[in-house]
Computed example of a mutant assay.
Amino acid sequence: MNEQTGHPAFRIQLSATPRGARLARRLAVAQLADWGWPYGCPVSDTAAHLVAELAANAVRHGRVRGRDFRLRLVLLDHGRALRIEVTDPRPERLPTVGHHAPDGESGRGMLLVEALAERWGTDAGNDLCTKTVWCEISSPAVCGLT
């Protein structure tokens, strides 16, 4: 439970490595299952894609040697919405949409976030030494129902 908002929340700090990014996705899916969205349901699948992309970006573009990244999941509006937040120590490196080489193998991740999330954005940390990239999706009360 988030002490500030009273909403159910999950938060974990992970190493800024590919292994940490993979773990973020797995832990997010496990937490969603605890909240009632089992592996394979639309909410779980969408959230898994979003967490994977945001965590990979934190590791690839937001990494500072010796600093971790944070994953936070928050249920909003009595469980009708899910907010995903990934915080990294590189406030100067903001994500962009659509700036990639047409034949490149990377650079399309935020297009995926924009397509899957209802909204997304960034926030600077209180200390201006971090940034949080967040997104929100609707989450029906029971898996498979809208």
Rank of each mutant, 00 (worst) to 15 (best):
M1G: 13
A55Q: 03
E114S: 08
G40I: 01
C129G: 15
A141P: 05
G79S: 08
T130Q: 08
P140L: 02
H49N: 09
E53M: 02
A58F: 05
R83L: 10
G66Q: 14
R108Y: 02
H78G: 01
G125H: 10
D68G: 09
G125C: 08
K131N: 05
T5H: 07
E53N: 02
T46A: 06
G144N: 11
L94F: 08
T96F: 05
D77Y: 03
G79M: 01
W37I: 00
A48N: 07
R25W: 09
G121W: 06
P8I: 01
L54H: 03
R63K: 12
D127N: 15
A16G: 09
D77P: 00
Q4N: 11
T17V: 04
L145F: 15
R119T: 14
T130M: 06
T17D: 12
D68S: 15
P102N: 07
R11E: 13
D77T: 01
H7S: 09
V97G: 06
R70C: 12
E3D: 15
L111C: 08
E85H: 08
T96C: 00
D68C: 14
G20M: 00
A81R: 13
S106L: 06
L76I: 00
A115Y: 11
G6L: 01
R22V: 02
G36C: 13
C143I: 12
I12E: 12
S139M: 13
V51E: 11
L14G: 07
R63N: 01
L76V: 09
V142M: 10
R63Q: 09
T17C: 06
A115G: 10
Y39T: 13
R72G: 12
D103L: 14
Q4P: 00
Q4I: 09
D88R: 10
D34I: 12
P140E: 07
T96Q: 10
V142C: 10
Q4G: 07
A58M: 11
L145W: 15
D123V: 07
L27I: 06
D88P: 09
P38I: 08
R11F: 09
V51R: 04
R25M: 14
R119Y: 06
V74A: 06
A30E: 00
T5A: 11
L14V: 06
D77N: 15
V97L: 12
P91A: 02
D45N: 11
G36K: 13
F69P: 04
A30Y: 03
S106I: 02
E114G: 11
S139I: 10
T130E: 04
G125I: 02
F69C: 02
G109A: 13
